[in-house]
Amino acid sequence: MNVNLPETLASVTAAFEAYEAALMRNDVEALIPFFWQSPQAVRFGATENLYGWDAIVNFRQNRQPPLPRTLMNTVITTFGEDYANISTEYRNSAGVCGRQMQSWVRTDAGWRIAAAHISLRPEIS
């Protein structure tokens, strides 16, 4: 297994950064394609469990815009050329701290989030 091949790491990092930028702009039309268009896609949020691409799209279209946030301790690890895990912590402008983990897969359409888990925590040391 090849871990963190430079070209693969660079391409998934660029996709993650584009996702984060779209999230901070609350650009729903840009955010939706970042998720794997499959009934097997999963997103566990701080207050919701979403199963399947349709549920994720519905959530995105009806969600309030997120507060600006700063990412910390982001770790991107690729396995081979088509799979990556991305873990990060964040603090939003209201001082709320959280964690986010995503599994990304390379599809014919590019990198897509197959699974995501977001959780809140009172503080980050």
Results as ranks from 00 to 15, higher is better:
W111A: 11
E123C: 10
D54C: 00
I124D: 04
Q37C: 12
E17F: 04
R63A: 12
I86P: 00
S11V: 04
G110W: 07
V105P: 00
E89D: 11
I124V: 13
A114C: 06
N2D: 08
Q61W: 04
L71G: 05
E48F: 14
F79A: 08
T70K: 14
F16N: 13
Q64I: 08
F16T: 11
R91W: 05
Y83R: 14
N73H: 14
I118W: 07
G52P: 03
A41M: 04
V28P: 06
Q102A: 11
P122G: 11
R106F: 15
W111L: 08
I124E: 05
R99T: 02
Y51Q: 13
F79K: 01
T107I: 07
N26Y: 07
E17A: 14
A14N: 06
D54L: 02
N49Q: 13
E17M: 09
A115V: 08
T8E: 04
R106L: 15
G110D: 08
I118D: 15
I56T: 06
R69K: 14
E7F: 03
M101R: 10
E123G: 05
L9S: 02
F35Q: 05
S38E: 07
Y19H: 15
R25A: 13
P122F: 02
L5V: 02
D27T: 04
L23H: 04
R91L: 09
R25S: 06
F35V: 07
H117G: 10
A10E: 13
L50C: 04
R91P: 00
N26I: 00
L31S: 05
L5C: 00
Q64M: 08
E7W: 01
G80P: 01
L120R: 12
A41E: 02
I86F: 10
